[in-house]
Nucleic acid binder design. Structure first.
Lengths: 163, 163
DNA sequence: GGATATCGGACTAAATAGGTCCTGTAAATA
DNA sequence: TATTTACAGGACCTATTTAGTCCGATATCC
């Protein structure tokens, strides 16, 4: 379906929440689940993955919890996606060379690699900081030009958005 | 996993093959399966979907078959993907407003919409013609602008081309 | 030592994708 | 008109992936 998994979506919400709490305190899994309104066991699972990937640091024991390993503007979206669902690649052959029997004769492989590179680059440039502060009109805008594909349906109002 | 399904991949290979045969003759499913080395029932299924989406025209009966509904340069990649796996949307809420309970309070929705728009735009600009002729250095390059952060230099995007 | 919280897996259930097959219908041809 | 060819539209089954839960082990603080 060409979309990120729900787990990944959750993970990014949790990360964004951590980025908003500008403190360096660690937040435990239960607390984060409550704040984000997501099921606790799932949040716990996500946090472990993100920690293993080096995006979060964990502290065990009582008073333990999780906190960001780096500043939000140093955490690109692509890393979060990779942490939660493996390497970003539009087609199989962009990730696993050799997996496809048609590889040597494939006519469309090269363009796919380019498309993949483009998507990858876009996800690399957007950082957690961009996600956590979507409505700062004075701040640097999320650097995406030419996004004309989005204008078609906005049934759910943008206006309502965030307060 | 953030990648297109195998069916979609196959579909694009078949479409590219049709684009290469510059004739306007229709090619039947069996023939296309042989040419592309893909399993016949699968190719047949794909062809039906592509026809329903208006990317191919079909001709029934003996001497029947499939042919491109439009010129390859008028068939964007995003349409092929949409035909075979539904609307392109990174997150659920970019496709189904209202499906997510957190929508109203979601902090990251707006940036996701933008990211989605960027990916969508990239896939819209790349056409079947680009995929079918991947090695023409003089032709118009796959327009990957719009995925790139600084929009100052569109002309250079050809050469550096993301790899 | 006891309470708290992460770590690492195993495990189940649900959803999706991949692939096959069958019946119906349209077109060409003899 | 009968026959053959080939698409149309599903139903259907299976394998894989994803979502979500749970538990024992381990680390830390008091």
């Amino acid at each position: 379906m060409f979309r990120i998994s729900r787990l990944t979506d959750y993970g990014i919400v949790v990360m964004a929440h951590l980025a908003e709490c500008r403190d360096d305190d660690s937040h435990n899994a239960r607390e984060l689940a409550e704040d984000t309104q997501l099921p606790a066991p799932v949040v716990s699972k996500i946090l472990k993955s993100l920690t293993r990937a080096g995006l979060l640091v964990s502290q065990r024991g009582s008073k333990g919890g999780y906190s960001l390993a780096r500043s939000p503007d140093e955490i690109p979206v692509v890393e979060m996606i990779t942490a939660l669902e493996g390497p970003v690649g539009i087609t199989e052959c962009t990730i696993q060379p050799g997996a496809c029997a048609q590889e040597s004769s494939c006519q469309v492989r090269d363009p796919w690699h380019r498309i993949n590179g483009a998507v990858h680059a876009a996800l690399e440039k957007i950082t957690l900081a961009d996600l956590a502060k979507p409505i700062d009109p004075t701040g640097p805008f999320i650097p995406l030009v030419g996004m004309d594909g989005d204008e078609t349906d906005h049934t759910a109002s943008n206006a309502k958005a965030l307060e």
